[in-house]
Design a protein around this nucleic acid. Structure first.
Length: 592
RNA sequence: UGCCCGAUGGUGUAAUGGUAGCACGAGUGACUCUGACUCACUUCGUCUAGGUUCGAGCCCUAGUCGGGCAACCA
């Protein structure tokens, strides 16, 4: 395989971030591009993360660089190992065979090495080139981070503050009013150092003291008003263990984690824009020997009819609106995978939407169109009937049968054919018959004819109703001379419908997924739980043939005229495959 | 009533002082043993007002509208 990017259906995108990076490269500001994807292990990855992953890995691939996977795990109260595992798995699935060789990981168990750069001590977390690897963890940097905090104290850039959370908030002022200096702001370096070390030693209870940067309480940017650097938390850490009773906050940990890993471009979403001066302030206050990373912000993804926020998705899970984090209706990577969406479709989508600083709302049709495109090219075709109606071909005898070789793909002959058996009794889709048809109805109706896909042309004869007046059976006659290979096979009729032979038919569960919300922006509603689409999941008992009954977990098919379906990965224990509908075919008829 | 950021067809984006283009959607038609795919055609845009310039979507000023920021979250 050549450059994997060239194998994508999309050409390499250009955007303002890639322009900056290209310029930094050509100006010689950095010999190699290193980016990072820094998830917090407190939830599942979703489509919004995929945009960031594809940006960070894309930039790395295009510049022969590297993208580190780093867990931003500085808040042990909210983070869990199970999320570390799911995130790692999701990323590997998304980037495998595309950017995998650009994934930066470290040697299992490695911690940053102290090295001397230009006579100054430095900490560097090197990527592993071979051996057993694992992702990077911000929590592996707690020791050097502590050292950097001591340096900040020593140089008069940080102090220990005894204010409670409520007091600190009151001292901070408001966006329009300046804050006031903490009464502890002018402690001596020695006292600060002593207090900070005792914080680490666990001498004080949670919330008793904090380490704060000493910047400017009257800054118009509230993030520069002596922001917190460390807080006391007597909790064990899922990765670092029971060693710590103080934990660094995002602003302190993130910029230094970037630095320690040699990140050149730290790409994040727009809400961190106002943090950038602090990001730079911390790094510039430390007299670090290597080139400093540069933070650049871009707009997060918003997709119509869906929600990304972890808090909200968690509520959907907890209140059982969906069936877990990998529910196929969720925009989580795990959910999309289970839904049958290929990783390549998600990558194409990430490229297609572009990178800007404009807070946009992407139409659902963009994503859906790309999923259809990616599935259309090579997904094998099958016939399946979702809501069966019995049809009897009255001119065929019981036991009479005709076998046709049906192509597995209309444009890819290399996929070969499979046998299809036409018999006296078959099932057709309820929607494909109308006793009183609407205008331009091209399916079976009284007095009309249609073609059975891969079968022959049939002509309506009569119907059978139950006592409630529902059509329970349709009778028709088959013109066997119109079968493939027969003299009249070229005969035209207005419609073609799909069907399954009754003796061959097996009942199996098919889950028809639709959008979870019925409003474009559920996140802006008073309560998004009131916007749930009651029909987001419909379970039907469908008729499938023998060519589908042995399908394996993860297999994908197009059920002709219906959509794309995949075998549910969580239902493998049952003898028959359970199918999830990935997406319908484009439909230019139903809405007319 | 502070600071930061943004604004190009219905939507997402490109044009980096020199012809406003692409994709998706929508509409119409062709084709069709999938009302799919494919193909053809059509529709539709630079937030406002000034300024600089031979020339402004792009640069400057002011305004309007939208987003973000005052967690011991990230």
């Amino acid at each position: 395989m050549t450059d994997p990017i060239e194998d994508s259906t999309e050409s390499t995108p250009t955007d303002f971030i890639r322009e900056i990076i290209t310029e930094d490269m050509s100006a010689g500001r950095t010999p190699k591009i290193v980016t990072r994807f820094p998830p917090e292990p407190n939830g599942y990855l979703h489509l919004g993360h995929a945009k960031s992953i594809c940006l960070n890995f894309g930039v790395a691939v295009e510049n022969q660089g590297r993208c580190n996977l780093r867990f931003d795990d500085t808040n042990p109260a909210k983070e869990e190992t199970r999320y570390v595992d799911s995130i790692t798995q999701d990323i590997r699935w998304l980037i495998a065979d595309w950017a995998d060789q650009h994934l930066g990981e470290k040697q299992l168990g490695a911690v940053p090495q102290s090295q001397s750069v230009g006579g100054r001590e430095d900490n560097y977390a090197a990527p592993a080139s071979s051996g057993v690897k694992e992702p990077f963890f911000a929590s592996d940097y707690f020791e050097p981070l502590f050292g950097y905090a001591e340096q900040l104290i020593t140089s008069g850039h940080a102090f220990v503050c005894d204010l409670s959370a409520e007091e600190a908030e009151a001292y901070r002022g408001t966006p329009t009013e300046p804050g006031r200096n903490s009464p502890h702001r002018d402690r001596s370096v020695d006292e600060n150092l002593d207090l900070f070390r005792r914080m680490r030693a666990g001498e004080f209870p949670d919330g008793d003291r904090t380490l704060r940067a000493k910047i400017d309480m009257s800054s118009p940017n509230v993030w520069l008003r002596d922001p917190l650097l460390y807080r006391i938390r007597h909790v064990d850490h899922h990765h670092a263990g029971a060693k710590w009773s103080i934990y660094p906050l995002y602003d302190f940990a993130h910029c230094l984690s970037d630095y320690i890993e040699g990140i050149t471009h730290s790409l994040c979403t727009l809400e961190f824009e106002v943090h950038r001066p602090l990001y730079n302030w911390i790094l510039e206050s430390l007299n670090l020997p290597r080139t400093l990373p540069r933070q650049i912000e871009f707009a997060a993804l918003n997709l119509a009819y869906t929600l990304f926020s972890k808090r909200r998705v968690l509520r959907l899970v907890e209140e059982k609106a969906v069936d877990g984090w990998d529910d196929p209706r969720l925009p989580t990577l795990a959910g999309l995978r289970r839904r049958g969406v290929p990783a390549s479709a998600i990558r194409d989508f990430a490229y297609r939407i572009g990178i800007t600083k404009f807070d946009s709302l992407t139409e659902a049709a963009v994503f859906e169109g790309i999923v259809r495109d990616s599935l259309n090219a090579s997904t094998p075709r099958r016939l399946a009937v979702l809501e069966p109606l019995k049809l009897v071909l009255t001119n065929l005898a019981e036991g009479e049968e005709y076998i046709t070789a049906a192509p597995n793909h209309p444009k890819d002959e290399s996929q070969g054919t499979r046998p299809i058996r036409l018999t006296r009794e078959i099932y057709i889709e309820q929607d494909d018959f109308a006793e009183i048809p609407p205008p331009k109805f091209r399916r079976l109706k009284p007095g009309g004819s249609v073609r059975l896909k891969y079968g022959c042309i049939i002509t309506y004869q009569d119907l059978v109703k139950d006592e409630d007046g529902n059509v329970v059976e349709v009778h028709a006659t088959a013109d066997l001379t119109t079968r493939s290979g027969e003299p009249n096979s070229g005969q035209k009729v207005k419609g073609t419908i799909h069907w399954v032979s009754a003796p061959d038919a097996i009942d199996t569960e098919v889950r028809l997924y639709d959008r979870l919300f019925n409003v474009p922006e559920p996140g802006t509603a008073e309560d998004f739980m009131t916007c749930l689409n009651p029909d987001s999941l419909r379970i039907v008992s469908a008729k499938i043939g023998p060519d589908l009954s042995t399908a394996q977990s993860g297999d994908r098919f197009q059920f002709e005229r219906l959509g794309y379906f995949t075998v549910d990965s969580e239902s493998i224990s049952s003898e028959k495959p359970v199918f999830n509908r990935t997406i319908t075919l484009r439909d230019t008829w139903t809405n007319k």
